[in-house]
Design a protein around this nucleic acid. Structure first.
Length: 541
RNA sequence: GCCCUCAUCGUCUAGUGGUUAGGACACAGGCUUCUCAAGCCUGCAGCAGGGGUUCGACUCCCCUUGAGGGUACCA
């Protein structure tokens, strides 16, 4: 029975990498009949935003990743926000201090920087020089009175440290390569290392599943556990997901693309851009020149203003692109892991039931959006009508589509007519014409040229169709179909020659739902009205 | 620089000393078709390089190369 935890630091929306970690934590716990804990690691006062924890939780819920213990639910080992557990950490830090396994330091940032540069000049890794005699409480008081920052460092033992990892096997480190790391920051908050080790013990975590970026932290954690008399959990360090550009798939990617776009665009009103992003002009300049990064909402807002597409990194990005949560879950679970099944399109339950912890892959993997698209197409076909309707309505709300005003029966009809669609966004695109006024239709100039204007055939066909459709006595999908087919046959032309002008007239583009249903859903009056509009609009040209 | 990890088609992967190296996505061609999709059929494509070990290496060992991660009072 595994007790796992997902421990995000609330700095923004949940991203793909975090989602995968969260997923495998859940899978592992569920597969063994164990428990799954959510813990918010908000020990960095400068980076944590108050809304981010909620965003992360919303994203997890959307994916169907629910926790047994944690925020909003509670549990015996709470509180589940590390910022609310400061006394607990101080207690353990004191223990380390009194047993001589940790010590105070007063170095300034400049002093530290100098030591690092010296080490680099000697082509060595920086190792903090542990003092022979540790500062006393009196020294601490004196340092404080001088206005120095006070931190606590852990004494990293020398010698070989073996980390046993499910994914990688035995990984060996040498203590002499590892520096005495800080466990208590000068603001009184513990660092990740200390808080994580203490909480994993107190919450009885048996399996720690996290990204490979934590592998180098693990020998330190193992030593900390030994010093505190804690158990060492089972570790599994998952390979990282890289994006097309190489490099870890992270929110930095989005910032990078935005920055490049801003720099590229000529005569841009920077003040306006900054205000759109809700930041001031100097913050924007800082972003452009250095490595400070605005938060996610600011980045999104500026990208929207510049009309550029940022790479999808966060779960919400994929939601807005019209992917189903089960698609993401399925796809992410098969990145760096292979299920012992002979198919790839899987439900979460199938993944949980068949989970085998020996099947993790060590290699970093690239996120292939085209394959994700293929997975989504399959999941879209797989889920029930009602479920699909629910997701579609949520999607429409999120992107604030005019189709929000559609009633359930119409939306269901659209969904049915969209069988084989790749994303919810595609369905929305194709059916949007049903929800906007005739005068708001945006005509695609290329399509208009090709289908309506070329040789004048298209407009002539429209005029003919308008007359025939007005005469139609019974309106139904079938009657419309037989009318159009009849005309094509009579004129000895393909149905395309008949249907395409009509399609462009009512949708503005050549891409839409099947034509017969489109007309029926729009209504015969609306259809004829749009045909008139199109004829008037394009005839004179 | 130093430390750690990794290496099978373009991508995700199966494979644990003897396989015609399998699948999926992508791509190409064809069929179907009222558009876009979807569907059906066919095809293309891979063990990074070099040394060992072995009767035999994709598989085990070493080196090279390449890729990624870490090197914070971030997690």
């Amino acid at each position: 029975m595994a007790i796992t935890r997902f421990a995000p630091s609330p700095t923004g929306y949940l991203h793909i990498g975090g989602a995968r970690t969260a997923l495998f934590d859940l899978i592992w716990a569920k597969n063994t009949g164990g428990r799954y804990i959510l813990r918010i690691e908000d020990t960095d006062q400068s980076r944590n935003s108050p809304t981010a924890a909620k965003q992360v939780m919303d994203d997890l819920k959307w994916l169907g990743i629910v926790w047994n213990e944690g925020p909003e639910i509670g549990g015996q080992a709470g509180p589940y926000f590390q910022s609310q557990r400061l006394d607990i950490y101080h207690n353990y830090i004191q223990k380390l201090l009194t047993s001589g396994k940790a010590y105070y330091c007063f170095d300034s940032a400049q002093e530290l920087d100098k030591m690092r540069k010296e080490a680099a000049a000697k082509k060595q890794n920086f190792i903090y020089p542990r003092p022979k005699v540790f500062p006393t409480p009196a020294d601490v008081e004196q340092a404080k009175s001088q206005g120095r920052d006070v931190v606590v460092r852990f004494c990293m033992p020398q010698g070989e440290i073996v980390v046993n990892d499910i994914v990688r096997g035995e990984v060996r480190f040498n203590g002499k390569d590892l520096s005495d790391f800080i466990i208590l920051k000068s603001d009184g908050f513990p660092t990740y290392h200390l808080a994580c080790v203490v909480d994993d013990e107190l919450m009885n975590i048996t399996h720690v599943i996290r990204g490979q970026e934590h592998l180098m932290n693990t020998p330190g954690h193992v030593m900390l556990q030994a010093a505190l008399g804690f158990k060492t959990p089972v570790y599994a360090h998952l390979s990282v997901i890289v994006s097309e550009g190489g490099g870890k798939m992270s929110k930095r990617e989005r910032a990078k693309v935005l920055k490049a776009a801003i720099k590229k665009s000529q005569d841009l009103d920077k003040a306006k851009l900054a205000s759109v992003g809700g930041i001031n002009i100097s913050e924007l300049e800082e972003f452009l020149s250095g490595d400070v990064m605005p938060d996610t909402p600011a980045i999104d807002a500026m990208a929207e203003y510049l009309k550029i597409d940022l790479p999808e990194i966060n779960i919400v990005d994929f939601m807005k692109s019209g992917f189903l949560p089960q698609t993401l879950v399925n796809f992410i679970a098969l990145l760096g892991y292979s299920a012992p099944l002979d198919k790839e399109i899987l439900t979460l339950q199938e993944i949980i039931d068949s989970f085998d912890s020996t099947r993790f892959n060590k290699t970093n993997c690239l996120f292939d959006r085209k394959k994700l698209l293929a997975f989504n197409t399959e999941h879209l076909k797989m889920i029930s009508e009602d479920e699909l309707l629910k997701y579609y309505k949520d999607f429409l709300k999120v992107i604030n589509s005019p189709a929000c005003k559609g009633d359930d029966s119409l939306l269901k009809r659209i969904l049915k007519a969209s069988h084989g669609a790749r994303t919810l966004a595609e369905i929305e695109h194709k059916s949007r014409f049903l929800f906007i006024d005739a005068d708001k239709i945006e005509y695609d100039s290329k399509d208009v040229e090709k289908v309506l204007l070329k040789n004048g055939e298209g407009l002539a066909m429209l005029t003919l169709l308008k007359a025939k459709l007005s005469e139609l006595s019974t309106i139904s999908e079938e009657s419309i179909e037989s009318l159009l087919r009849g005309i094509a046959e009579e004129k000895q032309i393909g149905l395309g020659k008949v249907a395409q002008p009509l399609r462009v007239a009512i949708c503005g583009t050549t891409i839409s739902l099947p034509i017969f249903e489109s007309i029926d859903m729009l209504g015969i009056k609306g259809t004829i009205h749009r045909m008139e509009c199109a004829i008037n609009k394009f005839q004179t040209k």
